[in-house]
Design a protein around this nucleic acid. Structure first.
Lengths: 148, 148
DNA sequence: CTCATTGCAAAGGATTTGCACTAAT
DNA sequence: ATTAGTGCAAATCCTTTGCAATGAG
């Protein structure tokens, strides 16, 4: 699924909901949906600047809300004090590895984990809605850099 | 491990670090270390009030930092927009189930999960430091209440 | 033309910090 | 007496909101 495709989906969402298609919305969606990274609101603002486009902070947050509501992006909280946003394009449910030194994020998914959380929830009387696993550690690159 | 014991440990920590033992510190430590719940800073302030003790917001946060540094408490972030604090007394590593309706928190631990996260980190080139799993769902009580 | 979006700036909530005052050792 | 802690209020960080100006359909 490429950039044009996700952009098309977002336009369709806006059209279906009678929401104006603005340059800002498309620029923000293009960045968030086209990126393989987990972007913060600030990352998005910087990238907008780098592309010569501009949008106010409020517009960025408001557009992010639309992307989430449309199901094209999800919000992540890694306990860093701010949120990150990630495209849902071709990624079903997955977990994250976070490097505590450089902030790098690696995704993974594990079928056993899915089953385990379901069972754990059940055995504690909870009906599971969702779960979130974050493994914090030091990535390969930082480990090598550290030992210098 | 009872209240007196944890209080004693905190005093020892303060003494060993040449830090004054103040009424505020003891009151806050008593609340955090003596509770079985995951308290927010606000919860702590309210409880202080309920006990007739008083401490400024700044003091609460500064004392929480001491409790964390001493290893007697840990900080939790359930993505609620604020942090919670939990005594480490007789609880090694464990995970959390969070009820999305009433906010109830249930703890559990799972040996297989420990091993799994270790293996997952390794196979992705990360040296694992720690991990955090939160399963969000609806607890038994809320489920029954809902179906009314 | 009409109505929603935009952007600024002000407001918001949680947490931190500067500083004069107070208390522990 | 010293030295550190306390509390207030101001400051910070991320995010949200009010409102006049602007732009999409």
């Amino acid at each position: 699924m490429d950039r044009d495709e996700v952009s098309r989906q977002f336009r369709a969402y806006l059209r279906d909901h009678n929401l104006p298609i603005t340059a800002q919305r498309l620029a923000i969606a293009d960045i968030v949906l086209g990126s393989d990274n987990h972007l913060s609101a600030e990352d998005i603002m910087l990238e907008l600047g780098a592309r010569g486009a501009v949008a106010g902070t409020a517009t960025v947050y408001r557009t992010l809300e639309l992307l989430i509501r449309s199901g094209l992006a999800v919000e992540r909280d890694f306990g860093e004090g701010f949120k990150r946003f990630e495209s849902t394009r071709d990624t079903p449910h997955h977990e994250h590895l976070l490097c505590t030194l450089c902030g790098k994020v690696t995704e993974f998914s594990d079928e056993r984990l899915e089953r385990m959380t379901m069972l754990i929830a059940e055995s504690n009387g909870y009906s599971r809605l969702r779960h979130r696993l974050v493994i914090a550690g030091v990535c390969e690159g930082c480990r090598n850099r550290e030992s210098v």
